[in-house]
Each structure stands twice: as structure tokens, then as C-alpha cells.
Design a protein around this nucleic acid. Sequence first.
DNA 1: TGAACAGTTGAACAAGCGTTCATATATATT
DNA 2: AATATATATGAACGCTTGTTCAACTGTTCA
Lengths: 123, 123
Amino acid sequence: MANKARPIEGCDCTVIHEVIVNLVREKMPQEETLYDLAELFKVFGDSTRIKILWALDEAEMCVCDIAVLLNMTQSAISHQLRVLRQSNLVKNRREGKVVYYSLDDEHVRQIFNQGLIHVNEEK
Amino acid sequence: MANKARPIEGCDCTVIHEVIVNLVREKMPQEETLYDLAELFKVFGDSTRIKILWALDEAEMCVCDIAVLLNMTQSAISHQLRVLRQSNLVKNRREGKVVYYSLDDEHVRQIFNQGLIHVNEEK
DNA sequence: TGAACAGTTGAACAAGCGTTCATATATATT
DNA sequence: AATATATATGAACGCTTGTTCAACTGTTCA
């Protein structure tokens, strides 16, 4: 159900803006949706995970490969891969002792590219 | 300058994957670029800031308006607006006592929309 | 000038997060 | 069965972060 307009009890200035505030309130997506969105971006908000995703966008790799590539411990990489797995951003397949990881989402690249545009504009 | 291929000293399996690892290494963007990208997503990784950005995408609003809209203290909103300002995501203008904030980046909506696609796919 | 209002800022606190270390699991090899 | 390799996991540790509280700045109006 849509959010209903309701009496404002804030600053004086907001009383004047009542119409606008209520209009924005109606247009806002569901609380839960915005929360999920923040959770997704939180996952992107770590350079180790960004690097992992970027690497996996180039090629399927095993945990050990990624650790060498990023010059980090295998444990640290494994922990981060779990986060990425739980966010449905990567998938894995086992081949003997080796577990290969790959991207599980084709939007990642587009999201990153949009982000890069902003980053590069700041110069 | 591009990253150079270098001898692998990791797990046995990575020695086998040496060619791939070095290929990915060459294709990775600069360390600093990936760091900046993570910093940007870190800003998006908080539901309060997501809500503020979403609201400002609908209409220019003053600090007090946002506080009422999100049912939070004005101080908390002001702190978050500072973060958004420092990331060049919002701008402000003063009109008497009131400071109005608005979006300062047209990519935000596109980044959010891409994120929403992922979020909605998980169902 | 002084009171009221809108917003900002710094310190403090709890909660969350990323890495490390030690250990556990799973598979392959001998 | 015992060993080695590849990965996963839990606890612990320091660091970061979001909110609150109190104090401060800046503007308007009487």
C-alpha cells in the first residue's frame, strides 16, 4: 500500500513544504527495497571485493589464483568470496581440490562502469 | 605503465594458471581507480544516504524536510549530507536560514536502477 | 540587541567490518 | 591409512562508521 499523506510535525519551514515532503514520501520506494539496495552497495564498498569482481569479470579463477593476484592470504580471499556468494554476485564449481569462482551477475560490469564515470568526473 | 608479467609464487595450482593470472593482472585497472570506486560505493552502502539521494532525485529539499521525511534527527541528516557533499553527489544553496540540497550527479539514478535490477532478481 | 530558527560540527559511544591466526573439511596421491 | 594440497570457517583483534548529545555558527525578525 502507498504511503499516505500525514500532518507534518517538524520545523516551521517544513510545514510550508508540507506538500512537497508528502509528495516525495509517496514516491519513495519501499523501506525494504532501499535497505536491500544499500546492502548491495555495501558489498561493492570494499576494494578487495571490487578487485575480486573485476578479476572474475576477466576470467574464472580459483581461490589461490585470486590470492596470488591480489597479494593477500587465501583465508582473507575466502572470507570475501563468501560475502560475494551470499549476495549472489559470484558462483563456484569444484574440480577436485580446486574451487573455481566466476561472476554470477551480468549487471556488475554496468554498475562499475557507471561508478567509474562519476569517479573520473571528479578529477 | 602496464603491470608486467612476473613469476608466480603461490599454490601449485596457480603455477599452472600462471598465464591466466598474469593476463588478468595486466587487464586490471589501476589500484587507485579501484580504491576510488570502492569509496564511491561505500557512500551508497548506507540506507540513510540511499534514502536521502532518492528523495533529492525527486525534489530539492532543506535539511529539516529530509529529517522529517526520514524521521531522523536533523543532526544525523546533516552529518550524512556532509558525506554526500564530499563525494560530490549533492550540492546546496542557502536561502536565508534555510539550506536547500539537491542532486549534483545525473548518474546516481542509473547506478541505483542497475542495483535494483540485481536486488529484484534475487527474490 | 536579543530571541528564535536552521543548520553545522566535534566528541563519544556502540555496532559493524576486514584481516589474521589457528583449525577444520574435502579431495587427491602415495 | 597417511600425507599433502586447496579451501572454508570461527574467534579475536583493531579499525571504521553512524548516531546521539551538546555546543556553536549564521540568519531573520521583533
